[in-house]
Design a protein around this nucleic acid. Structure first.
Lengths: 185, 185
DNA sequence: GTCTATATCAAGATAGAC
DNA sequence: GTCTATCTTGATATAGAC
């Protein structure tokens, strides 16, 4: 019988992948436990409900975005196009996965209208994302315009993730990257 | 075109609303039965599995789009802007709901990577939608351009639905309507 | 066509041994 | 910290009476 200690951090990382692959409601505590190499009972030692795991997962995602992605908008060593490209790629790396979708968008849509503790975290994720994009746009466009361009970029990105998955074709996402970049000189 | 709604038709209409509100996996057969004013056992008289109900729901949505929405792109009595406006509003009426999301996008994301019978119907919905939009754009833009503009409009629409729900603010969706319309003269 | 009753299984969650 | 065992509830689905 293996007695391998697991850390809460590792569980959150694994749970992120499982949730992204199967969605919130379609993922069971057994699924999460199994993916972590634990029995269901052991899993409750770390998290006492599914809601709290997702809360931890999304808080981790937000934290990572704040650490690694959003500051790119202020990186003085890059020009606007370079910032935008690096920002979009980094956000993609954090939020997306080979064949899973966007953890933030999927969870938002699934839990729309439900009373779950992590909705405020999802809002923060998208507001932070919009703010970072609009900072870059605001170097070349007026305030109101740059805000709407940022919102538009986020919407296109999420729509593209959906269509790319549905048709199993990266082109939708690639087009959005090119289109968003091409708005900057 | 059926003049009299059968019971099965009514169930499909009700199921559409429930699925749109609660999602595919988070909706139970009990939920559907209750919403139809039936006992669970009675419900199985009409549909013997949840998958078949969703299949019927999405087929009905596709059929309605083909009958009522997509032909607007060919309506000779309207100019391009009028066609676009009427098309977008009609698609919104069929696919969206007060506070529920887009049945096609939500179901697509939830069942991504799963083997369910209705994925091909979802693909048809989005391909039909893109085609209708690109028909209108192609009156004023070259072929390749109009195709990408149509894809972009769909992506923005779906992203806007997500953000409008998340922040409980219609403005995202309204902006997309205005922006898409403004591309036409 | 609708109901009640029930079988079967999975889910969320807890208790207690080691 | 991990396990097995168990509780409770809810889910899918079927059987059979009216």
């Amino acid at each position: 019988m293996p007695l391998i200690k697991t850390s809460k951090e590792e569980i959150i990382e694994t749970a992120l992948k499982v949730f992204r692959e199967n969605g919130y409601y379609h993922t069971s505590m057994s699924d999460l436990a199994k993916a972590c190499g634990l029995q269901k009972g052991s899993f409750y030692h770390y998290f006492d409900s599914k809601e709290r795991i997702m809360d931890a997962v999304l808080s981790k995602v937000l934290h990572t975005l704040k650490e690694e992605a959003f500051p790119i908008a202020d990186d003085k060593s890059l020009n606007d196009r370079e910032r935008m490209q690096k920002l979009m790629l980094t956000i993609g790396k954090i939020m997306l996965q080979q064949n899973g979708g966007c953890i933030a968008a999927n969870t938002s849509l699934e839990t729309n209208g439900k009373e779950v503790m992590f909705r405020k975290t999802i809002k923060e994720i998208f507001l932070g994302w919009e703010l970072a994009l609009s900072k870059i746009f605001s170097n070349q466009f007026p305030e109101g315009t740059s805000k709407r361009m940022a919102e538009q970029a986020v919407m296109e990105f999420e729509g593209a993730v959906m269509l790319s998955q549905l048709h199993n074709n990266d082109q939708y996402l690639k087009d959005v990257f090119v289109r968003t970049l091409s708005k900057l000189r």
